[in-house]
Amino acid sequence: MSEQPAVRTSDVWKVFEHDGIAVEAVRGVTLEILPGEFVVMAGPSGSGKTTLLNLLGGLTQPTRGKVWIDGADLTTLSERALARLRLERVGFVFQAYNLLPVLTARENAEFSLLLQGMAEDERHRMVGELFERIGIAGLEDRRPAKLSGGQQQRVAVARAVVGAPALVLADEPTANLDSATSLALLDVMANLNRELGTTFVFATHDPQLMERAQRLIRLVDGAVALDERRSAPASP
């Protein structure tokens, strides 16, 4: 029996209305992303990367077509069930507005665990280990305003992976970072992919990230123009 995809789409379309004009942001995308894959979706601005990422994570519903995460059809789920699914099976890293400013680094990282009702000791232990692993140990009690951009993104990565979700979706995670910090963050995510088997799907322009991709999906005008699996590992 073949392995169940972490996420799968079938002829997915997303059409936005702008001043009465229909804009096809995603056009008929059919994909299967397997557990443990390190996937990069690349393409020029307006190619539909972010929209497709949002569709994969259940942040928006397709105009047409189907999306499955771990076999669950997102188009049939209620708002509440979708929220539950995102909580338990999807991690997100965004380009900006990633952390809640009123929470400390630890509180941000353990947020999904908290929503899941995990005990405090267990949360602290898991976040502590993860912070150690990704190089931000000691920053647990700092608020986001007291963290650098790179540190903030690491906390966001920690939050995304700490609950061991089926996949982590990252939208331009390195866009606001300098080259060295980007590289370090990529190392963190590549290590997590290799060591924990976490599935990563990125939307990015970043050539450094594209180089790391095990699988590169190039989007043009909302459609898949290239879907290339590479032999090179994601590890640094």
């Binding site: 994570g57 708002e79 929220a83 539950r84 995102r86 909580l87 999807v90 997100f92 965004f94 999904s112």
Partner: peptide, 9 residues
């Protein structure tokens, strides 16, 4: 962000 992370309405 809260909604994206799985917080219910």
């Amino acid at each position: 962000l809260l909604r994206a992370l799985g917080t219910t309405p």
